[in-house]
Design a protein around this nucleic acid. Structure first.
Lengths: 138, 138
DNA sequence: CTATTAACAAATAATAATTACAAATTAGGA
DNA sequence: TCCTAATTTGTAATTATTATTTGTTAATAG
């Protein structure tokens, strides 16, 4: 069984309420929040939560491979508990970040081998455009 | 004629030596430097250059569509005077950022239309791996 | 059951990248 | 050459993130 509880145990890390809350929140949400947004949300249930804890927990979760970091071009990072490589799309109007679901772009990793002498390990793909809500309101 | 000089004139912007130096430097280089790196380099020729000027000039150049901003996952931005959409590859070992040249991934923009209801305007594609120099030194 | 100890959370200080501001300077047209 | 708005510069301020410190928690040995 490879749930969080076990992953933490294997690494001698404690699955504290704070850590669990952050992970559970990230899992439950599709908005790809920033550290600040996570902090604001979790603070409702854990009034003593510190922003430093959010940052430190996110770093741990990333090291454990439970969370990935997105950099869509803002001055901060966003976080995604879906660690599968998948494209994202950013609304240039409202800033929303969505998943591109069901699309498979994994051929990119092999295609690119013809154009580089790097060993290619992974990739990030971001699309930019206008979301349907913003299209309406124009 | 659509050189920088004219583009600036059209917008009532002054083509100062500083601005020109920054643009020329970015054009001449394939390293995708950060603001700090640009500042360090340009300072050699313009000892009075201020870091604030570098940042402000980069912003102007971006607005004019002469430069694009990259965000490969560092805590700072990198800049590229090649404004054509093209993929980049980052060495996870030494941090170098290279262009992927001659590859055409523009079908991505139309492919993705089947998986989103956004109007898709552009995309950014970053590969991550190990460069050939770093492979040798292992 | 208690003492020990390592991991942790919280608060706050520190750092790094970027931006804002105010005063001095300069580009480029009249 | 002169004028003026735009620009540069130095510095202060801001923002995101990380480090440090101190008190707390939880697992475990005795």
């Amino acid at each position: 069984m490879n749930n969080i509880s076990n992953i933490f145990k294997e690494k001698n890390l404690k699955l504290t309420p704070q850590r669990y809350a952050i992970y559970k929140f990230l899992k439950s949400v599709k908005t790809h929040p920033s550290a600040e947004m996570i902090y604001a949300e979790i603070s409702k249930d854990y009034p003593t939560m510190s922003l430093a804890t959010v940052y430190k927990t996110l770093k741990t979760l990333i090291e454990l491979g439970l969370v990935q970091e997105l950099n869509v071009g803002e001055d901060n990072f966003r976080y995604d508990a879906n660690v599968a490589i998948h494209p994202h799309i950013v609304c240039l109007n409202c800033g929303k970040v969505d998943d591109i679901e069901n699309a498979n772009f994994d051929n990119l990793k092999t295609d690119v081998l013809n154009y580089t002498d790097y060993d290619v390990l992974s990739y990030k793909l971001y699309f930019y455009g206008i979301c349907s809500e913003c299209k309406k309101g124009r």
